[in-house]
């Protein structure tokens, strides 16, 4: 009984953490890989380090507003 309760709380917490990660954009690389795979690109995907570099560097020339 208690173990299922703990499991429930744990899965709820994991779900919340995943959601929060999504809101913050922490899953961007995973989504990029998924896209790369499903789009059938021939060349190898960017490594995680390359991807995040590319992501912030592109923001240098394409800024996004933040509201007041």
């Amino acid at each position: 009984m208690t173990s299922t309760g703990i499991a429930l709380v744990a899965s709820g917490f994991r779900g919340f953490a995943r959601h929060l990660g999504g809101v913050m954009g922490a899953d961007a690389y995973a989504k990029y890989l998924e896209h790369h795979r499903s789009a059938g690109h021939q060349e190898a995907p960017m490594s995680e380090r390359e991807f995040w570099r590319d992501r912030t560097d592109r923001q240098d020339t394409n800024p996004q507003g933040r509201c007041c």
């Binding site: 959601h19 999504g22 809101v23 954009g25 990029y32 590319d54 507003g65 509201c67």
Partner: peptide, 22 residues
């Protein structure tokens, strides 16, 4: 996979809210 990415609606709700509210 970078700028144009299908995003779960509940995640996007939070993302959009965080961008508009300051």
């Amino acid at each position: 996979g970078k700028d144009y990415v299908r995003t779960d609606r509940n995640v996007l709700f939070g993302h959009h809210f965080a961008a508009i509210a300051g």
